[in-house]
Design a protein around this nucleic acid. Sequence first.
DNA 1: CAATAGATCATCT
DNA 2: GATGATCTATTGC
Length: 197
Amino acid sequence: MEWSELATESRILTRSFYNRDAVTVARELLGKILVHRRAAGMIVETEAYLGGSDLAAHSARGVTNRTRVIFGPPGHAYVYFIYGMHECLNLVAEPEGSPGCVLIRAAEPVAGIEIMKRRRPKSRSMEKLASGPGNLTRAFAITRAQNGADVTRGPLVVRKWSREPKFEIQATPRIGIRHCADWPLRFVIAGNKAVSG
DNA sequence: CAATAGATCATCT
DNA sequence: GATGATCTATTGC
């Protein structure tokens, strides 16, 4: 992929893309291109976090300082800090007032691979550069500074390919949670080498 | 290989 | 004061 193509405003996902239920958004984000700070990668693994009885979601106990953005308008980034070391990127779905977001767990590098390698010197293979939510934010230089950022306008955006790739979606339980551990809300591109776990 | 420990801190009880 | 939507190195088989 050429950076000149990524620099255009065309094919950036719009607000209406995110203004749907979190499961639909999680499935449709697969195969799209995450772009930030001279790095681009195809999203290959997502997880949906819902409102209602989904106790695994950070929004399950209502609006707090941290979870406020999840209740806000769709198409914004929710970035949180966990385990004293890692930051994780979510994209907010659902209409304003209704909680729901999608955790971006892995991406396959498409452009800016040398920059990603520099940000993740310990990574042994290209496929693993942005595999796992903490590794992904590291490779893309995404931090809590991006919390609340509008993802329908740069510098952090998600794009479509000029020709949509074909692939099979596989649904599995979400990773690393206690509550609702058997809900099949993790979605991966079947067989892709950049998928984590 | 699989299992485990340690790092390390924002958030909420 | 405990916990957690993780990662890596290390240990043990």
